[in-house]
Design a binder for these strands. Structure first.
Lengths: 145, 145
DNA sequence: ACTGAAATGTTGCCTAA
DNA sequence: TTAGGCAACATTTCAGT
């Protein structure tokens, strides 16, 4: 991870479809050198994914909730990961300090589909109960890390 | 916005560098047809950006918390927005149903800087108290928040 | 939707530090 | 031994039909 890698990340953050040659021209490297660095960044897990940002309102994904997850006994993070991975509405999740075992950020098309997704989380064994806070109005959304 | 557009969005979400031909093969369309649709989705603002997800630990931003915000009396969403906008560690926030007034997702370099950021939220007038859940291990990170 | 020309991605090999 | 450049080849993009 040197300055060149950081510049590549910046460029890809701005446009993940940018050509290797274009990036190289900006940071002063050949296309193949850039490709090799990008491949390495992906292999090393620095770049997690090449994705797009979609206007949530157009996509109709404008219903959100923060859900606290309470489990029975102790549950390994790996098991929570397995449960939550199966639900595409889960946008973001992590185990947390405090009384809840995990907090899950969900986004879905509407309330019924949110409810259905919640149900899929709840039926998992070891999940005791959940406590949801539905988002009324989105205040801040600083997309991208 | 038909089902084909939605399939294209799904594919690009999974891999924004996917070739038009590859996408076409999956959803049953020619490469040029896919390109025209993608161009239209970008022009219409449905696709906001082509970007990458970077491992936050590489950026040195590996401490996260979900914070419930409790206010005194009734606070307008605009005021919460004003308060939270001033704190760059706030990644995501919204007013919610339930006993808390808002939920705030914060990301910072380490615990001390998280504490400092929290303090900046707490000193705002009308903010009664906060309840934080610090993220122990990140399970899912599917979106850009 | 198909085609061909142009652009870009990909890989092997060589050189330099 | 690691990283970059160059060149040849494969694939993709893109405009014109």
């Amino acid at each position: 991870m040197d300055n060149l890698d950081r510049s590549i990340l910046d460029e890809l953050r701005r446009n993940s479809r940018a050509g290797y040659g274009d990036i190289g021209q900006i940071i002063g490297l050949s296309a193949s050198a850039v490709k090799r660095r990008v491949d390495r960044l992906v292999a090393d897990g620095v770049i997690r994914a090449f994705t797009i940002q979609v206007d949530p309102t157009v996509d109709g994904m404008n219903t959100e909730a923060y859900v606290e997850l309470f489990c029975r006994g102790t549950v390994a993070p790996e098991e929570l990961l397995r449960i939550l991975s199966a639900v595409p509405e889960v946008v973001d999740a992590g185990t947390v300090t405090g009384s809840a075992d995990a907090i899950v950020h969900m986004r879905s098309r509407d309330i019924p589909s949110l409810e259905a997704a919640l149900e899929r989380v709840r039926i998992a064994p070891n999940v005791d109960h959940t406590r949801s806070a539905i988002v009324l109005s989105r205040l801040i959304h600083r997309s991208n890390d």
